[in-house]
Nucleic acid binder design. Sequence first.
DNA 1: TTATCATTTGAACAACTGTTCATATGTTCA
DNA 2: TGAACATATGAACAGTTGTTCAAATGATAA
Lengths: 119, 119
Amino acid sequence: MAMHDVECCDTFQTHEELLNLVSQKMPDEDELYDLAELFKVFGDSTRIRILYVLFEAEVCVCDLAQALNMTQSAISHQLKILKQSKLVKSRRDGKSVFYSLADNHVRTIIAQGREHIEE
Amino acid sequence: MAMHDVECCDTFQTHEELLNLVSQKMPDEDELYDLAELFKVFGDSTRIRILYVLFEAEVCVCDLAQALNMTQSAISHQLKILKQSKLVKSRRDGKSVFYSLADNHVRTIIAQGREHIEE
DNA sequence: TTATCATTTGAACAACTGTTCATATGTTCA
DNA sequence: TGAACATATGAACAGTTGTTCAAATGATAA
């Protein structure tokens, strides 16, 4: 057994190679954290429902609250999270604030998720 | 104002149409729940790191624990979650259990996530 | 200005999540 | 069989999350 090989569960595969390969391809800690944070945002059905509404139209907070039958405060809190992760953008028009999708990754990611589920 | 229009934040857009469109395109409650559950699984950096290792090779639990410098128990708990959501599959060979990716949606979803972040 | 509407924000609370530790299960080999 | 190794599991704990409620901010019109 070569000096750098690591003994682990008695399988004599090339641990060294694996560890090298992994440390080479693994994104750095910051990116992993950001990735997890992004997916956390998709991991709540209220936020997914908000995104589904925004798939159809630019909508103000009050309309979102009504469409999803939730309090305006709850929606506003979730919109803040969606905005922080740059999934939606907002625009004020008079007293109302209108929200819309920030880009199309949102659609792709959700579409892939649905594909995975429906199997 | 038509009878079925809903008054909301004084914007006289076609609330009725919007509500119809949304209720038509919105997945049902069960699917929304499943979607959120799926993305929750991606929403943890330990699980993402496990997936990155499995991008490279089929690996046993003990090797995963070593590659990620975590306890075998912690890894095992996370593998259970990954397996429940059908992102990974496992195969026993003697004393060891080897894990691998269940399909390629995993790669696509993570790739899309990375794309979104790097903007 | 004041009144009203739309939205945001902060604190509080219950519910949930990831890790650790101890222990159980499963497998191989002597 | 018993010993050693690999993995899985359950309970416990701290840390996080989503909603509610009350109050603050922002914008408009009288």
